[in-house]
Design a protein around this nucleic acid. Structure first.
Lengths: 182, 182
DNA sequence: ACTACCATGTAAATCGTTACATGATTAA
DNA sequence: TTAATCATGTAACGATTTACATGGTAGT
């Protein structure tokens, strides 16, 4: 009875009118670091939220025939979104990480293989971090007051900032731990 | 076709003979920070792995009638476990975090409410961190050479160490970000 | 013409949680 | 005797992914 996708969609259409395709695109942007869904999950959820009268849509035509449904939030939807936003969030008991699961059993493989796997993971995380730095740079060009609560892009800033912090601290730990093998 | 639970179970029964109940208990310990499953998912998976001849079991009786099935890994199971351990792990596109999803939309609620939610999250993460520190302390009493690769408890050390790093860096970010609101 | 992208949906399978269901053992 | 823990399973539901399925638009 958590229905987090429901609130993710309500939050997005609260910001502005959006199609299912637009929501799918958003989950490929910054917020996708912390929540996402495939279009095959989004379209049925949009239908359900419409039935629940939390959102509604108008139809817009692009070109000659291409139809899209632009969803916006209803007052009832805003009410439920606000309640969710204000509710304290419990910590998940488990934050799954396949690499760490592997490490837990890594006594079963040779030290050299362990080092190789650490190096591979560090390279991948550094690549992702570079991409996050670039995203933050682009965002800063758009908005000088980025770090001020209430600035237009503050939500974007928060997720990028935390995504960077998450990667940086993971990489630091990987590097420090790899050095134990040397 | 990922079947991560399969490898989690193979890894556990590779360490030592174990019942479904024992596996469930393990997921409530350190490794549960990075992977877990409920018993309702574990028992069917044990059945499946047995059919696939990756594990096998003997029956043991406690007291007068209480039966338990003690599973161990087969050579075929060890083979598949090793292949998985040696394979580089892709980064997940999304590492879900409901608190961060909320923050992305938090422009919709008052600054004071934001601060309250940050403080709540910091308190919860600090409480968890204290528990992790205590676990590490207990582990250090068991094993002086903890931080040496190859030490008996090295797998435990790695997961605890990373769990602590993860909480510490999250808390640091939360505190720094909260200060932007002041 | 062709490619990348826009746009929406459904079906099937898998993964994961909550609830249902039962019974034994151990220590206070 | 009663509560906590040991022990194993299934059923129903919900969440998520992969695959199936179709067609339009815009730029080169």
């Amino acid at each position: 009875m958590k229905r987090t996708l429901k609130y993710a969609i309500l939050g997005l259409v609260h910001k502005q009118e959006m199609s299912g395709y637009d929501i799918t695109s958003q989950f490929k942007q910054e917020i996708g670091q912390f929540w996402s869904a495939k279009h095959s999950q989004i379209y049925p959820e949009l239908k359900r939220l419409t039935e629940e009268k939390l959102i509604e849509y108008r139809t817009s035509i692009t070109g000659a025939k291409l139809e899209k449904k632009l969803y916006c939030i209803t007052p009832k939807g805003t009410q439920e979104l606000t309640e969710w936003l204000l509710s304290p969030k419990e910590l998940p008991e488990t934050e799954k990480d396949e690499f760490m699961l592997m490490l837990y059993f890594s006594a079963a493989i040779p030290k050299e293989e362990n080092k190789r796997l650490f190096e591979d993971q560090i390279a991948k995380r550094k690549e992702k971090l570079e991409y996050l730095y670039e995203s933050k740079k682009s965002l800063q060009l758009l908005d000088k007051n980025l770090q001020v609560p209430g600035s237009h892009q503050f939500g974007h800033y928060l997720v990028l900032s935390r995504a960077i912090n998450r990667e940086e601290s993971y990489i630091t730990w990987l590097e420090e731990t790899l050095s134990l093998f040397e």
